[in-house]
């Protein structure tokens, strides 16, 4: 594929697919780009997408289904298509190490912040701590005990390793993202557009669609910015030389929250999570909380 030929690019992924599609559209203005977020699609739709992929010159996929024979799995697509680029969903919890998913019986627990949960609140509930005590646990000693201060370095390492395994080297750009955006993640798996745009540019350059030294647009609309914003806790922000602000969450703009409920503070989130967990039960929540968090908090409290 050369820069002069017509290009049709398919993007398959989850929550990052639309952003990657938007980025590729701007980076390769001559190309036709179509993005699918396949996470919530039923099997028939996935089958239809698979059938449509034959008309694309390049397939960019983040799909890694636990079932290797799943129809849109990158490995399976490679059997049929010549030009498939896979890289995993970008996960980076260095800024918000407390932000986790909770799974119960294979299903995600939906609570005050929809699918995202504070590990500290979930662990505190699991340990039977009264709700009134939980806000005080949001401090440097707890973060240290839970390894949150090491999370940034670990997250950098994880992101670099998982992307470089697919031939994408973002090591030179982490400092740039910190410089332009500060905290460059909204949640652990919602990157700012600067991250998606850079990865899209690397993919496009590797496919020969753009010169690798060409500029990456910095004005691409950032669809993920409408989603949940998880705060960088002050003690962590200080260590990362980021602006220090209050612990206020921002619910997704496309959700059902009333304006006064759009930006809950920590006590509100604690109350919401506790109410959700009370309906489920301590044992089940405890089994869903990562053991390192549960044991770390228990040790810190002893």
């Amino acid at each position: 594929m050369s820069a002069g030929s017509p290009q049709r690019i398919a993007v398959l992924g989850y929550c990052q697919a639309d952003g990657l599609g938007d980025a590729l559209t701007r980076i390769c203005p001559q190309a036709e780009v179509k993005a699918w977020r396949i996470g919530v699609l039923d099997q028939q739709v996935k089958t239809d997408i698979a059938a449509e992929l034959g008309r694309f010159d390049l397939i960019v996929s983040q799909v890694k289904d636990p079932n290797p024979s799943a129809i849109l799995n990158a490995d399976r697509l490679r059997e049929k298509h010549r030009n498939v680029v896979f890289f995993p969903t970008i996960i980076f919890n260095g800024f918000q190490p407390d932000c986790i998913y909770l799974r119960r019986g294979g299903q995600q627990v939906v609570g005050a912040l929809r699918h995202m949960h504070s590990a500290i609140i979930a662990a505190a509930f699991s340990l039977g701590l009264p709700q009134a005590r939980v806000a005080r646990l949001f401090n440097a000693a707890t973060y240290q005990a839970l390894g949150y201060f090491d999370a940034f370095a670990e997250a950098c390492d994880f992101m670099l390793r998982t992307l470089s395994a697919e031939g994408l080297d973002v090591a030179p750009y982490i400092d740039e993202w910190r410089r332009t955006d500060g905290c460059f993640m909204y949640t652990l798996n919602h990157p700012h557009m600067c991250v998606l745009a850079r990865v899209a540019h690397l993919v496009a350059a590797r496919a020969g669609l753009v010169d690798q030294d060409s500029a990456v647009p910095d004005d691409i609309p950032d669809a993920l910015s409408d989603g949940l914003h998880w705060p960088v806790y002050p003690e962590i922000a200080r260590r990362l030389n980021l602006p220090v602000g209050p612990v206020v969450f921002r619910r997704p703009l496309h959700g059902q929250a009333r304006p006064e409920e759009q930006t809950p503070d920590l006590p509100t989130v604690i109350a919401g999570q506790y109410a959700t967990y009370a309906e489920i039960g301590r044992a089940e929540i405890a089994s869903a909380v990562p053991k390192r968090i549960l044991q770390g908090l228990e040790a810190a409290l002893s």
């Binding site: 005590r133 806000a135 005080r136 949001f138 000693a141 707890t142």
Partner: peptide, 10 residues
């Protein structure tokens, strides 16, 4: 005092 400040003792 340290443990109270950090929520470890109530």
């Amino acid at each position: 005092l340290f443990r109270r400040a950090y929520g470890m003792f109530d």
